[in-house]
Amino acid sequence: ALDGDGDTRIDLWQSIPDAMHSGANYLKRAGWRAGEPVTIEVRPPQDFDWRRASIANRLPVAQWAALGVKPVDGSPLPAVAGRSAIVLPQGWQGPAFMVFDNFDVVMRWNRSVNYALAVAQLAKQIAGGDGLALLSGEAGALGTAQLQTLQQALNELGFDAGEADGLLGPRTQAAIRQYQTLHRLPVDGYPAPSVLAHVEQTHAAAAAAGTLILAPEPTFADPAAYSGE
């Protein structure tokens, strides 16, 4: 923490200069690259392979450009050193962002991709930048209960989504991607309502055919399954 207003004491709660200087110092120490972007809203080409859109898939900017990825305003991609990724916070039908090394710095503050995207977009608009060109993807994001239904159905179809806890973690995203690949859907790992509907239809057909992978019923012989008197 730093004394940003020069009053010889640090007060992150009451002094905006102290808070701003301290935050900037944290980012600098975490590896912030001055003059480089955090994110850019981009528009992939119509024939884009959505499997490439993953925070873990890092490519040089020039390689993304060769694949036809452009900023939404049609300008060239910036000449930024290092590798970047494409992320889809609302699936392939929603906004797409190219994220750079400074995005990783923001994520050291908070490990949520959506948090880092929101911080980057807010900072951009505070500085006078444009809002999002594409505000949302498919209407009707899944709630916790619906996501639990999706996870349970994927598990019973043989796709390992982990515990049906209603939380969208890497394991659930990987299961969705595997399902999308098998069924020739756009592979973005996003639990859109249309994905849930498709999975439920497949699940119903598998149930009718008797091919679901069902967890065994707990018995009192299993101490882990019995907590009664």
Rank of each mutant, 00 (worst) to 15 (best):
R43K: 15
D104G: 15
Q178A: 15
N114K: 11
I10K: 14
S136T: 11
Q146G: 14
G228A: 15
D222K: 11
L117K: 03
Q63N: 13
V106R: 04
W13N: 14
E138G: 05
T144G: 00
A53T: 06
V80K: 07
A209M: 09
R83E: 12
L185D: 04
A53M: 05
D188L: 12
A1N: 09
A85K: 03
G82S: 04
W13S: 15
A133Y: 03
L117E: 00
Q152P: 07
P191T: 10
Q146H: 12
A123Y: 08
P60N: 05
A116I: 02
L67W: 08
R9T: 05
W13Q: 15
G140N: 09
E41M: 12
T144Q: 01
Y190M: 02
P60Y: 12
L59I: 05
V105E: 07
A174R: 09
V42D: 01
M98F: 00
Q180H: 13
P60I: 13
I213V: 14
R58D: 04
A161D: 09
G162L: 04
Y115F: 14
F97I: 02
E36I: 00
I126R: 14
Q148C: 00
T219Q: 07
P89M: 03
L135N: 10
R52G: 14
R43M: 11
S75T: 13
L154Y: 01
S15P: 06
Q14M: 08
